[in-house]
Each structure stands twice: as C-alpha cells, then as structure tokens.
Design a protein around this nucleic acid. Structure first.
Lengths: 328, 328
DNA sequence: TTAGGTATTGAAAACGATTTCATAATGTTA
DNA sequence: TAACATTATGAAATCGTTTTCAATACCTAA
C-alpha cells in the first residue's frame, strides 16, 4: 500500500504538489506534473478513499432502499439507477428492507456516518417524521413510494390514475363485479385503491370488501387468491391485481381449475413485465416505464448532490399506459 | 455533526475512553461507560466511518460483480447474498458489468482504494492474470463463474453435469437432433457445452454446429432462435437452452407459429424460475438452487474476511437437479 | 510494610489525504 | 528600475478516529 508520501518521495516533491496533481489544481508546472504522474503509475498508487472522505470529499455512493430485489419491478428500477449512476462515476449500495420499518431506518446510518451522499427511498415503511431528522446528513428523495408530508423531491407515477384506468378498462368491458389486490398499505397501494374506488363509484357500483385483498405480492399469492374466490358463491368476474406476478399466478391457477380467461375471469396486471406476453393468454397490464422512473430518480439525486438542483417538496410525475391484450 | 471530542467533552472524559466504550474494550469502569453512553445518546453521536476506516477498521462492505441485475438468476443470487451480508452487518455494493471487461476491472478500484473488504465475482470477463494483482488489497472469490487458473475459492456448480443431464434427458426421450444455446463464452457456458457434447457423443451422435448458438440471453433472443430454426430444412427437434428466459421465448414463439411443444419441439430451460411453471406447457428445466449459491458465496466471503477461513484454490460445488415437466 | 500485579484513565501519535499559509520565483506595468 | 501581480512550491495544520504509552490507583500475597 503506497501513500501520497511515497509518491512525493519518489517524485522528489512535496505531498502538497502530489495532491494538487491528483485533484487537477492549477499552479502546477507541467514538468512536475509529469514527474508526479510517472511516480504514481510506477508505484501503482491509488488514493485511499477513506482519507479523502475525512477531508469532506464526496463518497460518490448512493444507497437505494427497496423492499426486495427479486421483485422484477425493483430489479429493473435498480438496473436503470445503476446505469445512470455508473455513468457519473457513482456506485450504488443495495438495501433490501424486506418491508421492515426498523431495517429501513437502520440504513440511514449510512448517511449519518458519511458512507453515502444520498438515499433514494423506493420503499417507505416509515413516516416522514422518522426520516426527516436524517436529511441534514445528506440528500434524501423518494422514488415511486412517498409520504405525503415529505418535504423532498418525489419521482413517481400518478397511481390514482393507474388504479383508475385499469378498473375503468374492466368496466368498459362490461364487468360489474371487479376484484382488487394490493400489497401492503404503501402510498402506491393507497392511491391505486383510490383510483379503483373512484372508477367503480363513478359507475354506480357499491364497493364489495370481500373482493378486495391485501398483502398480495407473489405468483403464489395470486394462485391463493384464485383458490379463495373459487369457493365464493358470488365471485368477481374480473380482477385488478396491481402486479404482473399476481396476475400471472391468478390466471395460471384459474386455467388449471378449468376457468377460461378472459371469459370466466378477466385479469389486469401491472408493470408490463416479460411474463405478460409469455403466458397464454398474453395479458392486459399497465406499463409504468420502470426504467424511466429509475433513471429519472437517479438523475434528480445526482443533480441535487452536485448542487445543480434544489431538493424541495415537488412531485415529478411520469406517465402510465394501459396495454390491452387477451386477458380482458 | 458531533465528533468523539464533543462526546468526551460532554462526558467530562477523554477521547480515548469514549473510543473504548464505542469499541467495547475492557478496562472501562461501569460508571464512566454509562456517562459516555448517555452523552452519545444525548448528542445523537454516530462515528464517522471514514475516520474509522483510516485506522484500518473493516469497511463492512462487499462488492458483487454481476453482468446485469435484471437477469432473474442474478436478482435471486444477489438477494440471497444481501440477506446473508445484512445478517452480519455488512452492506452490498451492486456492480453491473454489462459484460464489459473494462467495467469489470474498473470495479477493482473499490478494493484498492479501500472502499470494500472484498469482491465476489459472479461475472468473469477478465482472465485471472488480470485480477490477481488486486488480491493483495482484499478478498476476492468467484461465485458461479470462475477462471480455471484462479488461486481463490470458487463457489459454483458442476456445469458439465448440468449440460449433461439436460441433454441426456432429451436423448432419453428419443431425440437425436438436439440444439444448444449459450450466452457468451464464460466458464459456465464452456462447461455446459462440454456436458452437452459429452452426452450426444456418448449417444454416438455427431455434433452439428448449425444447431449450436452463442450470445443467446433473453426472451427475445429465444424468439429469434426459433424463427431462425423454423427456416431450416433440417431443424433440431429439441433444445437445451441453458436459460429459462430463452426457453420461454422459444416456446412462445414456436406456439405462435403453430408448432406444438413438446411434440414438434422439446425444450429444456435452466434455473427453474417462476416462469417455468407459469407457461403452458410448464417446462422442464434444471434447478440450480440459486439462493443457496448466493448464500454460500457470501458465507465463505465473510469467513475469509474475518480470518475464519483460508482463501485458497478450492471448488465448493453445490447440487443441480433436473425437473421434468411438460415441455419434453 | 512492600513488591508486584491488575484495573482505569488520558495525552499524544498515528492513519492518509487536502488545504492554508508562507515564501520564492517569475512576469508585467509604469 | 521599482512596485506589484501571478505562478509555483512546501511545511504544517487538519479531518475524526484508534491505539500506544505512561501514569495512577487499587489489590493481594509475602
């Protein structure tokens, strides 16, 4: 492990001069600059980043909090973020909260102890009041999820709209008994439900609590929901699932039980993942242009870190689009 | 931002004592310990990790190099790693190399500049000779991929076996014209091909280069391969695809073109992802217990970092299992 | 009592960079 | 030529920790 001292010694110059060369400061003569660079290459010198940070250099790291990376939505989101970050010389620290508020909050130590320049919250189990104290240690923004009280930038979608267009589509197809699934009570879910309720209420339909399900996340959960409704006397004829995984599981299980899709059960997914065009029938879903969201969020984060943008309460809304296929 | 000095001042003690409390050193009287802890809580003090690192404390970070997180295999691998790491108080830095040898090598600066304690190579575009010089800066191990010359631990599968059992299964079903797909020329692919060739050679079949494809990664690639073989005078009747995505794309496209699976084309995937049981027909694939691999790799990494294990040339082989379904 | 251990504490020296300040050399203008 | 600005360099302070070293207090056994 060579240090700046070794380089200085080898080049016959002072540490200060070497540091100036490293940081591209003005006022270093060309010949000394060459000498320093030569010495650095010969020793294979790389600055110790901890020492640099101690002098208030940026960490060039951003943490992203998500519930779980195995969810394809988050994979894609993180992929887009990483790509953008890498382009600017930043690294991504992956933090899976697994929907635990404690774990989520723990990760803010990364900010406090100066291990990251900022945190992108794509999971939000904690109230803004719990998060706010940490904002003095670095940049915090929301992505996809958010808390209405937050005083920072929120890159997200109009999920009310998302819930609305999905449900409206089923209504337009003539359905009156429309089921609804969501994950946990996140901002995304709360808003989608608003949209769902708005659509059916507009159509003069009374919401049926028996057709509304919570904590539904996976393919397997989708299968379970189907098995549940199959036992009902008066099951829904259509479902807004809020997730392509759930839609996939529901459709598959329905078929295995001899139900036809969409004739016996129409299903709308969410996210337009590859699975949506691979199953038979290919299914209707809502494209939320996940990569765009991730890219935009990281772009905003980097702009704020580099003082090119102010981090104020602001919603940056990205588009949604219904894609009609054969499941509805 | 409070420092150890502030805590010392507030507690009326020296920095040394505070540091001893933080690090659980012996020889601190109970009352001073209480006083220090009280002061820390009151100030909301958190140690500056850069300063700690400068004194050769571990970074408690591990970088994992993969080609791309959107590949479900890698999502699951990374998820398992993160879970294991978090349990031991370590964080994961996600590095997508996008199959670029330069990008891959760049990430080793993280080791050199002491930003991570170790690197798990789940992508290996570079020769071991290029990687080796960095091993003096921290722990490096391979996971899944590897270079035969590497002198470090390799957590992986017997991919020769993987290629063999997949192909053998198709032979047992009576196929004689068996196609083969792989990604780039990684160790995984090279070994799987060996297994494929071993199986068909054993069966007295001459390999046909026209039925062997490279750089096939995605669902879309799978579709393309089908469209290609559909134009052949003498197409294969079965495929070992080396990937569930490719298998999914191939099956779907075949069906869209009126081919029956498995009657007109039998397909074996690889990885047993959810998609394998969602499509119709559910398809035969090879379960490589991805979570196990990731968990084991991280376990080994942490043991080496914490000096409980030696990092020597050693293969840790994990099991594979063929799962027969309706596509063969 | 005394010698020799064992706890308990703090001052000060690291760790490896950046930056301030002082100084020297050089150029520029009147 | 004098006065002043500009360029170029290094010594030393600094960032916030950990750790060494020395000093002190307290026990215990002879």
């Amino acid at each position: 492990m060579y240090t700046i001292k070794d380089v200085a010694l080898k080049a016959g110059l002072s540490q200060a001069t070497v540091s100036r060369v490293i940081n591209n400061h003005p006022y270093v003569s060309e010949d000394k600059k060459q000498a320093v660079q030569k010495a650095m290459v010969e020793l294979g010198y790389v600055p110790n980043s901890s020492a640099q940070r101690l002098r208030n250099i940026k960490t060039k790291k951003v943490a992203v909090l998500i519930s779980r990376i195995v969810n394809p939505f988050f994979s894609q989101l993180v992929d887009a973020m990483e790509q953008k970050a890498a382009k600017h010389g930043y690294q991504l620290i992956l933090c899976n909260t697994r929907i635990s508020p404690e774990k989520e909050l723990d990760y803010f130590q990364l900010l406090q102890s100066k291990q990251v320049d900022g945190i992108i919250l794509a999971a939000a189990e904690n109230k803004w009041e719990a998060i706010a104290p940490y904002t003095k240690y670095g940049t915090v923004i929301y992505c996809n999820e958010y808390d209405p009280n937050a005083t920072v930038t929120r890159v997200r979608l109009d999920q009310v709209e998302g819930g609305y267009i999905g449900t409206k589509h089923l209504l337009d197809k003539g359905h009156r008994k429309i089921g609804y699934c969501q994950g946990n009570d996140s901002s995304v879910s709360v808003n989608r439900r608003k949209g769902y309720l708005k659509a059916i209420t507009e159509a003069g339909i009374e919401p049926n609590p028996e057709w509304m399900f919570k904590d539904v996340f996976t393919v397997e959960n989708g299968r379970e929901i189907f098995r549940h409704i199959a036992t009902m006397d008066n099951p829904p004829t259509a479902f807004f699932t809020g997730s392509d995984e759930v839609a996939a599981g529901m459709i598959k299980e329905a078929q295995l039980n001899g139900w036809r899709v969409p004739e016996d059960l129409a299903v709308v997914g969410f996210d337009d993942q590859p699975i949506a065009t691979l199953m038979d029938p290919q299914f209707t879903t809502i494209n939320q242009f996940t990569s765009n969201i991730g890219e935009k969020a990281m772009e905003v984060m980097l702009e704020i870190i580099e003082k090119k943008r102010e981090n104020k309460a602001e919603d940056i809304l990205l588009p949604l689009e219904l894609i009609e296929r054969q499941s509805t």
